[in-house]
Every structure is written in structure tokens, then in C-alpha cells.
Measured scan of single mutants.
Amino acid sequence: DLSALRVEEVQNVINAMQKILECPICLELIKEPVSTKCDHIFCKFCMLKLLNQKKGPSQCPLCKNDITKRSLQESTRFSQLVEELLKIICAFQLDTGLEYANSYNFAKKENNSPEHLKDEVSIIQSMGYRNRAKRLLQSEPENPSLQETSLSVQLSNLGTVRTLRTKQRIQPQRTSVYIELGSDSSEDTVNKATYCSVGDQELLQITPQGTRDEISLDSAKKAACEFSETDVTNTEHHQPSNNDLNTTEKRAAERHPEKYQGSSVSNLHVEPCGTNTHASSLQHENSSLLLTKDRMNVEKAEF
């Protein structure tokens, strides 16, 4: 173990290094160091905050020279020094078990990766560091076993998940096959086929009936047209017969005018059967003409 005197000496050296690497504005270890034209180094955030307070150039807090945003430059070497100082402080805390008085939040800088452990060898070769390295080497064999167990647990979990997924996939297939086998029997399929065939026959029977009705309507229309044509021909046949009657009536009127007047009046009210309204109107006109002729003949006879 380190003596108290040596611990104090190391602590004083760390404090001196820390004062050199402090920012003059925030009085902390410089984060993202930036250098000016006057070779003074500050935190990048502190300098941008200072420049944004005034429009135009501002003055350096140490030498009062003008500073602009374009004049600022990043210093990589200074950032490396800060990183190495942080590593020294971490090693000091691990070796002594004491917390550094002016320690900052170094938890963000710590890294437990194997590459980081290899890099620590180049920091300080001390008894405390050696003991700590031995402890780490002793704890390393235990870690692979834990990793193997965790991997086995994960693989077993994956296997159970896969088996569950396969079961879920197989179950719908089985149910679907069961439904297909038990849903419709052979008799049901035959009945469905016969039902479809009967429906098709009914459709075939319905369509000819409609065509037959249309044919019957067409035949009825044709018969009505033929009947009207026969009526017209009958009226045409009746007209010459009426003319013959008129000639006979004229002759009778010349011989017996008194008797014919009474008979002509009675004939006005008689309509021949089986004739249309057109034929009756023609008869009325003929009878009126005959009456006028008879009157003329009677007057001539009187004179």
C-alpha cells in the first residue's frame, strides 16, 4: 500500500496539472479547448457565450486583445492532455480508494470495455495498479461463464418462442383441414349439385314461356288486323247491294208514291245487322237523297 506522504505528493502534482488545464472563465477543466490569436485557451462554450454578448469583436479576458469567431481554432494537443489527466485522476481514485477533492464528473469518461483496460497499462506502473489488474484478471474467467449461461438462457427462450410460433402455425392448418373434411358430406355435395341443376332447368323453362307469350301476342295482333281488313271488305261488298236497293226503291216510288213515303220513313230507323257505323252513315245519306228525289217527283206529278 501507498504511504500517506506519497499520496499527498501525487495529489499535489495532480492539482498543479489541473490548474494549468483549467479554463480562466469557468475555472474547470477545459472541455473542447479553443485557442485565440494571443495563444490563450478557453472552453469553446465559454468563448461563444462571451462573443454573443456583444456585437462585433470582444476582448480576451487575459490580455484584452480583440477576439472574433473566425480567429478561434481548435487545439487537439490540449484536448489530449486533458484526457490523460482524467485517466490519471481515475487511476488515483481506484488505487487509494479516496475521492479526489477537486474531482469532476468523471463517470462519463469511464469505460469498462476490454480495449480501455489494455490502455490503462500505459498509465502508471504502481503496486495498487498491479493489484487491481490481478483482481480484474481473476474476475475475467467468471465473466465468460456468466456470458455462457446468459447465452444458453437466451437460446432456450428463443427455442420456446420458436416452438410456440410453430404450434400457432400448425393449429390453424389443422382446424382448416378439419373444417374441410367435416363441413360438407358427400350427400350434401350431391344435393347441392341437384339443386343447381334444377335451378338451371327452371331458368331454361322460364325463358321459352316468355317467348311463347310474345308469339301469342303477335298472333293476336295479326288476327285483329285481319279482322279489321275483313270488316272493310264487308262494308265494300254491302255498298253495291245498297245501291241495288236504292234503284228498286226509286222504281217503286215512281209507281206508288204514297205507299213509299211511309216505308221510307220506317227504313230510316232500321239498321242492317253486321255493318259498322260507317255503313250506317252512308245509308242515312242515301235515304235522305231518296226522300228529296221522291218529293221532286211528287211535285212534278201535281203540276
Rank of each mutant, 00 (worst) to 15 (best):
A91T: 01
H238Y: 08
N131S: 01
K49R: 06
E8K: 13
P144H: 08
F45Y: 10
E83D: 07
K118N: 10
E84G: 14
D119Y: 02
L81F: 05
M47V: 07
K49Q: 06
E254A: 13
I20N: 15
A253V: 14
G128D: 12
V270A: 08
N143Y: 10
V82L: 01
S266L: 06
L282S: 07
K109Q: 08
A133P: 08
N143K: 14
K222M: 12
I30L: 08
Q93E: 13
R132P: 11
E226V: 13
L29M: 04
I206F: 06
C43S: 00
R6H: 11
G262V: 03
S139N: 13
V153A: 08
I20T: 11
E180K: 15
H40N: 01
H237Y: 12
E84K: 04
A223V: 11
S35P: 01
R174T: 12
E84D: 05
S3C: 07
Q173R: 14
A223G: 09
I123M: 14
L81H: 01
R295I: 11
Q138E: 10
F303L: 15
L137P: 03
T194I: 12
E9V: 00
S103R: 08
N131D: 13
S126G: 09
C23F: 00
C60F: 01
N102Y: 14
Q53H: 01
K167R: 08
C90W: 12
G210V: 10
V121I: 12
L21F: 15
F227V: 15
K250E: 12
D39V: 03
E142G: 11
T160A: 11
E214V: 04
T36S: 04
E258Q: 09
I124N: 11
T233K: 09
N157T: 03
Q80P: 07
N131Y: 10
H284Y: 07
V265L: 11
L94V: 07
T36P: 09
T160I: 06
T160P: 10
R255W: 04
S139G: 13
L136P: 09
E202K: 03
S152G: 13
Q168P: 01
E299V: 05
L217S: 14
S152R: 10
T292A: 08
I25T: 00
V265D: 13
K192M: 14
E110A: 02
A133S: 02
P257Q: 06
K44R: 06
S75R: 05
S150G: 04
L50P: 01
Y129D: 06
R135S: 07
E229V: 05
P208S: 08
P141R: 08
F78S: 15
Q93R: 04
L155I: 02
Q201E: 05
R162G: 08
E28Q: 02
E229G: 14
N65T: 11
V198L: 04
S228Y: 09
S75I: 15
F303V: 15
T189N: 07
K259N: 12
K221N: 13
M47I: 02
R70S: 15
E8Q: 14
T275A: 12
S156P: 14
C273S: 08
K37N: 13
N143D: 04
D39Y: 06
K69I: 06
E142A: 06
D39G: 15
Q209P: 01
L151V: 07
I89M: 11
K37E: 07
V13A: 10
Q59K: 03
L290V: 10
I123T: 10
L27R: 01
T76A: 08
K300R: 10
S79T: 06
S185F: 03
K31N: 06
C23Y: 00
D213A: 13
E148A: 02
L217M: 14
Q125H: 11
C43W: 00
Q168H: 12
K54E: 00
R169L: 11
F78I: 15
G97S: 03
F78Y: 14
R132H: 06
S139C: 03
Q11H: 13
S287N: 09
Q209E: 09
C90Y: 14
L48M: 04
F45L: 08
G56V: 03
T277I: 09
D66A: 03
R135T: 06
S35A: 06
Q209H: 09
I215V: 12
L50F: 15
K134Q: 15
N267K: 05
T36I: 00
G262S: 14
T230P: 04
K221T: 15
E99G: 02
V270L: 00
F106Y: 13
A252E: 04
I124M: 15
A301T: 15
R174W: 13
A224D: 11
E99D: 07
S281L: 01
F227L: 03
D95Y: 00
L27V: 00
K49I: 05
V34F: 00
D188N: 14
F106I: 04
R169Q: 11
S71G: 05
S219T: 15
S113F: 04
A4T: 09
E99K: 06
D66Y: 03
K259R: 09
L51H: 00
H269Y: 09
T68S: 06
A101S: 06
Q283H: 12
I20M: 14
S219F: 11
K293T: 14
K64E: 04
I89N: 11
L5F: 05
E140D: 07
T275I: 02
A253T: 09
N267Y: 09
G159V: 04
D231N: 13
R130S: 15
S186P: 14
N234K: 06
E214D: 12
S156Y: 02
Q261R: 04
A224V: 01
L151P: 03
I88F: 11
L204F: 12
E258K: 09
M17L: 05
S152I: 00
T230M: 13
R212S: 15
P257T: 07
S263C: 10
T76K: 14
I67K: 02
E32G: 02
Q138L: 13
I206M: 04
E258D: 02
E214Q: 07
Q209K: 10
K19Q: 06
L204S: 14
E84V: 04
S156T: 08
R132L: 04
T149I: 05
L62V: 02
K55T: 08
I124T: 08
A220P: 02
D66N: 13
K44T: 01
K69N: 13
N243I: 07
A223T: 10
N246K: 03
V82A: 01
D184Y: 02
H40P: 00
E140Q: 04
I89F: 05
E148D: 11
P57A: 15
E22D: 01
Q80H: 09
T76M: 04
V34D: 00
M296T: 13
A133D: 02
